[in-house]
């Protein structure tokens, strides 16, 4: 009797060990479809038992069950419904020139982000409310209140707000707000049968999962807010976007100073859903220093004032 290595594979024959190593490599590389092929082949070759193959496949499926497996197209449909839900509470502000400028600025900024291309692209709209707030739905539908725009003294500060929202989109914060159980049941449903249209009970089950996802995200955006670290992450993305585009990142600090003056903990708008601005400023200044924002070129100041006049 020779000594055997004490490992998870202790007692396994070399062949099974090699097969397991291949599976581990496939799993690590995220090649779950390959895992299925390999486990099927492995079981057929007698290298692993059918039970072992099934167990490995289940582990691979479990790894897949996360927000990352929501396809860009699904993210797009989630985003549409989240935006439509936000627009039930906050009416859109129908001001063509202002919305056009908002989109020109926002879409231009998005080119400097980590994910300039999303399934349906970035689109921006003003909300007809005094409340100081901004929301971004998955996939790039961004909504910003008139109250928030009024707080901005310049294009640079508005750019800072939009860049923060783009940060939420590119980091997929909306999708991450979907509660774990919901996503699992949704993904389970999606995995049930592929490549055919679903009717009746299947569709109802899927729509229920969809409703729950929308509820989780819209509730997070309008009521509970993201975790502190999530907001800091969006701020960090905003700084990168502003810097890449040629805006002074310190414009975000200028904006947050204005927000601090109107800070009401648990009050309506950002007070309920965001960390205190002074905390965010401290976090940002740790990254970019405490120098005040440079004066913006007069052309940027002028076009902002002209387009946002009356908002």
């Amino acid at each position: 009797m020779t000594a055997r290595p004490r490992s998870a594979f202790a007692g396994a024959r070399p062949a099974a060990f090699a097969a397991a190593a291949a599976l581990a490599a496939a799993l690590a590389a995220g090649c779950t479809s390959v895992t299925r092929v390999v486990t099927t082949a492995g079981a057929a070759a007698g290298v692993i038992t059918p039970e072992q193959a099934e167990s490995i496949n289940k582990s691979a499926a479990a790894i897949e069950k996360s927000y990352e497996d929501i396809t860009p197209e699904q993210e797009y449909y989630i985003g549409r419904a989240v935006a439509a839900t936000v627009l039930v509470t906050y009416a859109p502000y129908d001001a063509p020139a202002a919305n056009e400028y908002l989109n020109l600025l926002g879409q231009t900024l998005s080119l400097f982000g980590a994910a300039p291309e999303t399934f349906g692209g970035y689109h921006f709209i003003l909300l007809d409310t005094e409340e100081i707030n901004a929301f971004s739905a998955p996939g790039g539908l961004v909504m910003i209140s008139r109250g928030m725009v009024r707080l901005c003294g310049s294009e640079d500060e508005l750019a800072a707000v939009l860049a923060h929202e783009i940060g939420h989109v590119e980091n997929q914060h909306g999708l991450r707000a979907i509660k774990k159980g919901r996503l699992t049941s949704a993904v389970m449903t999606m995995l049930a049968e592929g490549g055919k249209s679903f009717g009746g009970a299947e569709l109802a089950q899927l729509t229920e999962a969809f409703e729950n996802c929308i509820g989780d995200i819209a509730g997070t955006l309008m009521n509970s807010g993201y975790a502190r670290a999530t907001e800091y992450e969006a701020d960090a993305s905003a700084l990168a976007i502003l810097r890449s585009a040629g805006y002074d990142p310190a414009a975000l600090v200028g904006m947050l100073r204005e927000m601090q003056k109107r800070w009401v903990p648990n009050g309506p708008g950002f007070g309920r859903t965001h960390p205190e601005p002074s905390d965010r400023i401290a976090e940002i200044q740790a990254q970019i220093g405490a120098a005040p924002a440079a004066a913006a070129p007069s052309v940027r100041v002028a076009r902002f004032k002209e387009k946002m006049r009356g908002v």
Partner: peptide, 20 residues
Amino acid sequence: SSDELALASKGFNSDVEADF
């Protein structure tokens, strides 16, 4: 027949949006 493809072809799509 592939999990990967099946996942993409099902899910939240225009049918689900219409139902919603």
